[in-house]
Design a binder for these strands. Structure first.
Lengths: 234, 234
DNA sequence: TTCATAGTTCGATCATAACCGAAGCATCGA
DNA sequence: TCGATGCTTCGGTTATGATCGAACTATGAA
């Protein structure tokens, strides 16, 4: 029969509604306390405590003890990617937690996916960067994990933006990665470069993150800048 | 306020050990029958039937009915990608499975499928006939039921072999049909033409059927002939 | 036709795990 | 030292859903 990883225990962890809510709210890459996560999951703090222990034991979360608070966050980008792929399938199957609330369009347009930008704008940008040959894309057989590389032209492009590629190359994390977007079901840019790009927007006050949410709000200048990047007029 | 896709139902589907095993073995993109998947999951066929219904309802699998068999396969590459990301995390957390099992090589190579040839050789032949435009294949959206037609070139090809296409066309049975192969999970040629082709091999003593078995044994001449057909040198 | 095989549906059993109350532990501020 | 807060652990209840036997439908084989 089979040799390989046993996905059932991990999936079962995500399969509980309370835990799934906790993981969803943590997929913006931030850290939250046990009490906050209990409220998010709609359970008492005792129950939440049990859930959180299991998530830590299952290598999905890490905990950071600060005084009498315990801050939980996703263990890494791989966890966020797994959650995103589940969100895509859930949206496909019509499983929604809230039917198109007012925040929903904003969430679809621009949101944080762990530590990089996701949503319509991010997907459009990714497509454009590929057609401009700033990113080089190589498809795999099953179309699942596309590998992304930065071209020579791309290096100049991001250096012009003021992003330190040398520093990023030194990290263990891959520079470029394609991440499947749940709302559009197309790729956006992840990896160190994706994170650096979002950080670039934060630093220059082109974008800010809404508190307690995954929504990213662009300033007027930010809108203009991103539109120019997508149009290829920068 | 909670906004976005609800990942819990999907993850819970994957979270059951029996279903997870089924999904894992299907993640090579091939199709398996309900009975095979039951064995894979280590449950009875009744239980497997229940699991498979849920997986289809949850948009993770699609089912392809062929005779009294039901072939289940992953709905799409997004499902495979989700499973892949889960496998990465599972391996990370040290969750592994181990088991092994054998199968009959002769049966895999060439066997009877109802009244036509199946197995590795037959699948290879089918592929070759398509690339040589002897058969014309039109894929459907989901890739499930492929329809096959005989081209003009194909009519000449089979007429040269001495197969009476006029007689076959008179029958109610469809001339060409794609049949999903049990061992390779790819298509081979079925229908009246598939049956006629196997019969052609029987008549010319190129092949004979083993008693009490589905195994088809090729004579030396038969091996040569079939190899030539697959190589396109006939 | 009759038999065999593939698969589904129903019903009952049973095990797991989610849940919360209560109690306990740890940290902070005063 | 004390009380307040953040969180964990324990124990008992409960509900969900996985499981399989038996009966049923559908298709193929003879």
């Amino acid at each position: 029969m089979k040799v390989g990883p046993d996905i059932a225990p991990i999936a079962a962890l995500v399969g509980d509604p309370a835990r799934a809510s906790m993981l969803s709210v943590l997929s913006n890459g931030r850290a939250l306390t046990a009490t906050e996560l209990a409220q998010e999951g709609g359970v008492t703090i005792q129950t939440a405590s049990s859930h959180l222990s299991k998530l830590v034991a299952g290598n999905l979360l890490v905990v950071n003890k600060q005084g009498r608070h315990r801050y939980y966050r996703l263990k890494g980008p791989e966890v966020a990617a797994m959650l995103e792929s589940l969100m895509g399938l859930a949206a496909d199957a019509g499983h929604m937690r809230v039917r198109t609330g007012p925040k929903d369009p904003a969430l679809r347009r621009a949101r944080v996916c762990y530590d990089h930008l996701a949503g319509d704008l991010s997907v459009d940008l990714f497509d454009r960067l590929v057609t401009r040959k700033i990113l080089r894309l190589s498809k795999t057989d099953n179309g699942a994990d596309d590998s992304v590389m930065l071209s020579g032209k791309g290096r100049a492009y991001f250096a012009d933006l003021g992003i330190d590629l040398e520093a990023l190359a030194g990290k263990r994390r891959p520079l470029c990665k394609a991440c499947l977007d749940w709302s559009v079901r197309r790729n956006h840019l992840a990896g160190g470069l994706g994170a650096a790009l979002l950080n670039h927007f934060y630093e220059r006050k082109l974008a800010r993150r809404e508190p307690e949410s995954r929504i990213v709000t662009l300033s007027a200048r930010g809108e203009k800048k991103l539109a120019a990047m997508i149009a290829g007029q920068d």
